[in-house]
């Protein structure tokens, strides 16, 4: 099952990945990270196809795509 892994130390919570994901798999965490942002997370595990669009738009190289 493809998935994304978000590096919470890099994510600045810009939410661009949330809009980039056509299948709406990504949401923002309700708790903030050590850097003080609400980082992105894979909200619906089974829906990720590993297309990598979220990683394309991510300005902070915070998303790893595993397939």
């Amino acid at each position: 099952m493809p998935e994304i892994r978000v590096d919470e130390t890099r994510c600045k919570g810009c939410e661009l990945c949330v809009t980039a994901c056509n299948l709406k798999c990504i949401a923002m965490s309700e708790t903030f990270s050590v850097t003080g942002y609400y980082p992105a997370k894979l909200a619906k595990l089974e829906c990720c196809t590993g297309c990598g669009l979220c990683a394309q738009i991510c300005p902070d190289l915070a998303i790893e795509v595993w397939k």
Partner: peptide
């Protein structure tokens, strides 16, 4: 860079 800034991309 600031959150969401295009420079990083």
């Amino acid at each position: 860079y600031c959150p969401g800034c295009g420079h990083g991309i």
